[in-house]
Amino acid sequence: MEYIASLLPFMLEGTAVTLQLFFLTLVMALPLGVVFAVARLSKFKPLNVFMQFYIWVFRGTPLLLQLFFIYFGLGIIGISLDRFLAAVVAFVLNYSAYLAEIYRSGMQSIDRGQFEASDVLGLSRWQTLRHIILPQMFKRVLPPISNEVINLIKDTALVYAIGISELLRAAKIAALRDYLFVPFIVAAVFYLIMTAFIQQFFKWLESRYDYYR
């Protein structure tokens, strides 16, 4: 017990890094995904094709590899990003691609009649999107989004590969230093606590959208 307590400061520092990366990614990727989804559905061909390509690349390669490209790869061509910034960039680009596809499916599941009713009432394309389509879309995509968000908190562990001291790396350092398995158990508990919070948050969000069917 004393040993666990002695681990905590170090592990909490790692958790802080994990959470920073998590929230920064969400704050940027959640809205960017909407923009990408709208672009992906655009009738303007070049934009549409570019988004398809983008989504293919970022879903079609491992996130870890993307992390290497942005941290080491950009370094080779003379753009050197700080480790943490590189991680944020990679995560935002990757998660926006996944979220864009979720949003797209959500938007396409909205009945044509909603677009037509908006249209005959004189709403502009932007007004239709903003007031009619997106609010209904968010309700429908909450379950798959909560999946992605839970994936994200676990994916943050990947950044230890470029030497960022997040939660898992902190656990590993402690485990190797003390020849004990306990730090890994502590890390697991930490992850579970975070995912429990995420689950509760989405449960609450879904209940907030429960006022209509």
Binding site: D111, G113, Q114, A117, V120, Y212, R213
Partner: peptide, 11 residues
Amino acid sequence: MVFQNFNLFPH
């Protein structure tokens, strides 16, 4: 315009 399926905004 009034549609067969009403097309009210459910939210």
